[in-house]
Every structure is written in structure tokens, then in C-alpha cells.
Write a protein that binds this DNA or RNA. Structure first.
Lengths: 155, 155
DNA sequence: CGCAAATAGATTACGCGACATATATGCCAC
DNA sequence: GTGGCATATATGTCGCGTAATCTATTTGCG
């Protein structure tokens, strides 16, 4: 006799499960590069938007509430992938740019992400994308991560 | 000039954003109870399935890959919400049950989850649920978190 | 019976992710 | 310029989440 979980509760856990598994897949795929999914997000953002202040990076990050990506970036600078430079105009700002090595990695990340997108596309197959994205957009519309993503798409 | 993020990439980040924000909402709503969303999931599972071995709990958890919920449960036992008892038949097993206090909390958690489900329902409003759950089910079907959820629904 | 393999769980290490707080810099009013 | 407020970043703490390794216990095979 099933517990007959209600649809909304199942949906909640499906979102959790999908995020967890997507992250795990990406984690394993990125392992050879020595970086994590969150670090990869930073690198991809910098590739498209450098130079960028820590602050503005936080505004574009979905993986974090944006309060303090400094530690996330710390690991990338110690790994020699990101360059930090204090702004000449406002010494509170830190200008972030990719290093040569970081730019090289960015390309490899793109290729790895392709595999993930193929998995997602396979699951979307035969369904109405707009129903799915419409629901998710509505859910996160007024929340920090949703706004970060909106900025990413718009910029 | 928008970057025109491709739909699949947006979908990937929408799932990430939805999970993060849902978790944040739940985290804040549960704060007065002194527990976290993951801890709440354990309590709710125990409410429906106790007594349960640590191992079997892991098989039902979506929030964790199931390898080692021992730390998660540790905090619940130190908080006096869960009782650990070594099985008489197999001393490798630990039987978990809710304490009186744990049972009391389980009810409060259910009420708090209702609020989250209302937010989700509001975003689903006017869309085809089957398109959404169908996609997510397909994506996680053969992965640990998806199987955990399937067990939850079936049991 | 005896020993190897399997199983349950604990422990450890590392990197987030959320939150609160601290410090440093800029800026504006006066 | 100085006081006060806002902004940019750094730091500390807690609880996951993943994975690897370790220990204890049971089981299975001879």
C-alpha cells in the first residue's frame, strides 16, 4: 500500500534529486580538470564578462547567494586560474580576470557541459520545454538565484 | 545585446536556482524549530517508516547519496529527537526511532512544508504538471536520488 | 571449524553554502 | 577635513554532501 505522496511533494523532491544528480555528474566529469561545478561556473562567467569585480560576480552566480564568493575565488587564484587585481579607481574593488591557464580550462569546461546538456535534452525529449522552464522561472522569479540567472541571460 | 543562453543551459541553471531557493526558504522556515531541511527529511522519513536502520534510511534519503547519514543522524540524536539502538540480531545494525520530542517536531515540520508546497503550487498554476514531473523523473530515473525517491513513493 | 568476502557503520578530508560579523575604503554633508 | 554612512571584501562558524578509508561484525564457502 503506497504512501501516495502528493504530486507537489514529489515535484519538490524531484527538483532536489535532479540538482543533486546533475551536480554529481558534473563533479565527476570535471574531476580530471581539478575543479568543481561551482568553480566552473565562476570560470565560465569570467570568460564571458571579464574583467569583473567580486561583487558583480556574486550578482551573476546561481550557485551561491552572492554574499561572499571570495573564498570560492580564492581557490581559483591559488590554482592559478584567476587573477586578482585591486582596482586603481576604487581600492575596495577587486578586478577578476582569467589567466592564460584559466582561459584554456574554460574551453574544456564548455565541452564537458555539452555532455550534461545532452543528458538533459534526452529527458526533455518529447515534452514541452516551455511548461518546464515556465514553471521554474515563475518559482524563482523574485528570488536571488532567479534574478542572478536573469542577469546572466540578459547580459 | 543578450548572450542568448541556450534553453537547455537555462533549464540546468533553473533547476539549480529552484533547489537553492527552495532550500533557503525551508531553512528559514525551519529555523525556529532548530533543525535544517536535511534533518527535517530524516524526521519525516522516520515518522513514516520507523524503526529504520541507518542503511535503509540512506536508501530513502534524496538529500544525500546515502553513503553515510551517520553524521546527519548524530546531530538529531544529540538534539534528543532520534533514538539509536543497536539491533539485537545483527550488531552491525542501528535501529532508529523518533523520540517523543521528535514525534512532536514531525507534526510541526509537516505544517511548515505546507507553506513551501503552496509556493510551488502557485508556480505550477496554469501549467501541465505531467510535463514537468515527467521530465524530471526521466532525468533522475536511473540515478541514486531518483531511486531513493521512487522507493519513498512506493513504500 | 576456519578463513575470506561481504556488509554496516564510523571516521576523515575537502569544498561548498548560508549566515553573521569585521575591516577597509569611498563618499557625502557640513 | 571630519563624522557618519554606504559599499566591497574578508573572515569565522556551522552543517551539509561527496568520496575515500577504516573497523567491527556477520556470513558463506570449503
Amino acid at each position: 500500500m503506497p504512501h501516495r505522496m502528493r504530486p507537489t511533494e514529489e515535484l519538490r523532491y524531484l527538483i532536489l534529486a535532479a540538482q543533486r544528480e546533475g551536480n554529481r555528474l558534473l563533479l565527476q566529469a570535471l574531476r580530471p580538470l581539478g575543479i568543481t561545478p561551482s568553480q566552473a561556473e565562476v570560470i565560465r562567467i569570467l570568460q564571458d564578462h571579464q574583467p569583473l569585480a567580486l561583487n558583480s560576480l556574486g550578482d551573476l552566480l546561481v550557485c551561491e547567494s552572492g554574499n561572499s564568493p571570495s573564498r570560492l575565488v580564492d581557490r581559483l587564484t591559488s590554482a592559478g586560474l584567476v587573477d586578482r587585481q585591486i582596482s586603481a579607481f576604487d581600492r575596495r574593488h577587486v578586478e577578476l580576470t582569467l589567466t592564460e591557464e584559466g582561459r584554456r580550462l574554460a574551453g574544456q569546461i564548455t565541452a564537458i557541459e555539452e555532455d550534461l546538456y545532452r543528458s538533459i535534452d534526452a529527458a526533455v525529449e518529447g515534452r514541452d520545454t516551455d511548461q518546464i522552464t515556465g514553471f521554474l522561472r515563475a518559482f524563482v522569479a523574485d528570488l536571488p538565484a532567479g534574478r542572478a540567472l536573469a542577469r546572466r541571460i540578459a547580459s
